[in-house]
Each structure stands twice: as structure tokens, then as C-alpha cells.
Write a protein that binds this DNA or RNA. Sequence first.
DNA 1: CCGGACGCCTGTCGGC
DNA 2: TGCCGACAGGCGTCCG
Length: 271
Amino acid sequence: MPELPEVETTRRGVSPHVIGRRVVTVNVREHRLRWPVPADLAQRMTGETVTAVDRRAKYLLFRTGRGSMMLHLGMSGSLRVLNAASEPGPHDHVDLILDHGHLLRYRDPRRFGSIHWLDGDEDHHALLDQLGPEPLSDVFTGDLLFQLSRGRKAPVKNFIMDSHVVVGVGNIYANEALFLAGIHPQRAAGKISAARYQRLAQTIRQVLEQAIAKGGTTLRDFVNESGSPGYFRHELKVYGRGGEACEGCGTALKEIRLGQRTTVYCGRCQR
DNA sequence: CCGGACGCCTGTCGGC
DNA sequence: TGCCGACAGGCGTCCG
């Protein structure tokens, strides 16, 4: 799915269309997502006005006076703003009909996404409790990565994809950030120097910010609120380029499996 | 505590 | 052409 840049692109895209709008009707056509959609979601949200759309990790939080709808896009989810009269397709599971003749539509072919309801104004949920820092915040630093990684034997790629360490870094951007930092994805996390973690924290932040600026990466399913894809795919240096020449040295990029995920790197530039 | 594997689900693509 | 396995932006859970 959607990694952090795609979720942030979605947040920014839907915000102006939903903030200040009242929810007139909630249509849940499919309750079976990763977890069941709350049976009382419609009862909770109908009549409420959306006051803000926030993001924590890869979750979107739609604020209302009574509580928040917490939504995850999973691997194949997307949110679109459409005319209230538009007909839903096969994987369009949930609609929020708004008071200005438009609707917010949640589509998710693989149904790995989820929707929860948080009562009141607290962000209290088991799925949020154990999350690490936001990579675009000040508390995310190379020092933090260095401290947390001591004694860890897992590959550094797995380490930076661990949501207890830092949130929002999925498979695409983990590959990209490691390439930009010149770090081999299989290197043990606990054996990397503080200086190299400074560089890695920097490239993680850089690649996420640049991807947001391009509206995220679309491989297959991701579209923004208007139905347009993200354009960062053209900027990817290694992901999806196994066998191609490394931009830095011309060597063929290698492709392996790490933790069940495709991993691409340059055996010469990344050590 | 840590690390690795397994499912959840649908769609697509490559190989035979 | 058709079938079958592998794989796809995630992540909670289970097991050693």
C-alpha cells in the first residue's frame, strides 16, 4: 500500500473536501475488512461535522465532535471524493455522504485495510499505542536509530521497517533510503555506526518528503482523492529496477528476498 | 526480548 | 488458450 507518502497525499487531498462538512449518511457495503467495520459506525458519524483530518503513522483520523474515524488503507486501499450520485464499484466498501453533494469513498480490493471508531477526543487505541516516532518529526534522529539498534542482529532493512522503531517506512522507501545512504540492506542493524545512522535518518526523511511532493508512488492501486496516480515511481532509484544499471556506478542492481519482501540494492555502492 | 514465518484477500503476470 | 504458482505499497500474531 500506501506507505507514509501515499497516506499523507490522501490526507492533504481529502481534507479541503471534508473539513467543515456534515456527514449526512454512512453506507457500509462490506464490513469484512482486516477487522470488522464497527457495526455502529453510521450511528456514530451521521449528523457529525468533520473538524480535521490527521495522520498518525499510516492511519488517517477523521475528527468529529463525538470521536474519530480511524482508517488504514492496507495494501490496496484508496479514498476518493466523488459526486454523491456516482455508483459504487465492486470493491467500494464504504461511503460517507457529505452535505455538499459529494461523498468520500473508500475502495480496497484486498481488504487489508481497516476502519475503527475512537470515542471522544483521545487517540486511545491498541493499534496506536506501540508505534514509534514519526519520521518527519524532530524526535526522529540518527542518534535514536543508533541507540535502538544496539544489539540487534536483524538486517537494517527489517529494522527501519519495524513500526516500533519508526513509522511509515514500507518496502519501497526502505529500499530507496538505504540506497541513498549507501548502506547494504542485509547489514546487521546493531553493527552500523552512529555516523551512518545520521546519514540514514537524513535519507529516510528526504525520500519521504520528495515522494510526498510528487503525490506518492503508484504501482497499481494507489490514486489520490481525484483518482490520479502518484508520480514518484519515476524517481525510484532501485525499487522495481533489479537487473538495471545502478545510477551511481553502472553495476547491475541485485534483487533478493529479505523478510519475504523484494529487496533491491547495488552491491558496489551499498556496503 | 528478538527474529522470522504465516496468514489475511483479490488481481495480475509469467511460464509452461 | 488455460492453468498454476508467485508476487504485490501492510502488519498482527504465533512460534522457536
